[in-house]
Design a binder for these strands. Structure first.
Length: 222
DNA sequence: GCGACAG
DNA sequence: ATCTTGTCGC
């Protein structure tokens, strides 16, 4: 069986290596990463899209499918998703300077969400962009677009709750590694183009889910 | 003991 | 995450 106790200790130890200062100024390439499951969860599918900044034109995208070997356990999500993420990463011909990951960065009980774990494995700056809260608390947000509140946990800020679009649930943004809280929010804002999700994550999600709209767009770019 | 709980 | 059509609201 899985030794959750040991894995949590591992997270706490690796979290000490996380750097929350900026390691870059302006990225040339920004990637979006998303993970999903198929065949009733037996197959893990990861997608990555690399976009050029500031045009946000798609440079390349890939999908990797591997057998799932770890269950979903709140707080231990990265152990379930990182193998597939490393698999897609290998397919990239252009390595990005920054990756926006679907999930939490340091907004995690032990400050080690999937975005942080991936960043440490790849040694690339990442930002965690989650659609739901895992931990932490915050003041209520107004309905206004751009409305933002710090996400705190145990007297420390671990991220931001940001309303990227009107009448939409807010995003939970937190640095993964090698980027600060402020810069994380800044780049997410810069990549919001009228939709709830920032372009990198939005495209990674769309390409992975194989939706009609995205398939048409891919053809237009081919 | 009772909730909360990324994807 | 995933299973799934139409439908209510701006």
């Amino acid at each position: 069986m899985i030794d959750t106790k040991l894995l949590r200790q591992e997270q706490a130890i690796k979290a000490k290596q996380i750097i929350l200062t900026d390691n870059f100024v302006i990225p040339n390439l920004i990637a979006g990463a998303d993970v999903g499951f198929e065949e009733k969860g037996s197959v893990t599918r990861a997608a990555m899209v690399v976009m050029r900044w500031p045009s946000l034109a798609i440079v390349e995208y890939h999908i990797a499918r591997i057998p799932t070997e770890f269950p979903y356990i709140p707080g231990l999500l990265s152990f379930r998703e990182y193998p597939a993420l490393l698999a897609v990463w290998e397919k990239l011909q252009h390595k990005p300077d920054l990756i926006m990951v679907d999930g939490q960065g340091i907004a995690h009980p032990r400050r080690f969400g999937v975005a942080s774990h991936l960043a440490l494995l790849l040694d690339i700056p990442t930002i965690g962009i989650a659609k739901k809260r895992l931990c932490g608390h915050h003041e209520a947000l107004d309905e206004t677009v751009e409305s933002c509140q710090p996400l705190n946990d145990n007297n420390e800020q671990i991220g931001w709750v940001f309303r990227s679009k009107k009448r939409c649930k807010p995003l939970y943004i937190s640095p993964g590694h090698k980027i600060s809280l402020d810069t994380s929010l800044l780049w997410v804002k810069r990549c919001i183009k009228g939709y709830r999700l920032p372009e990198p994550t939005r495209w990674a999600d769309g390409i992975a889910s194989n939706r009609a709209f995205f398939n048409r767009m891919k053809q237009n770019l081919a």
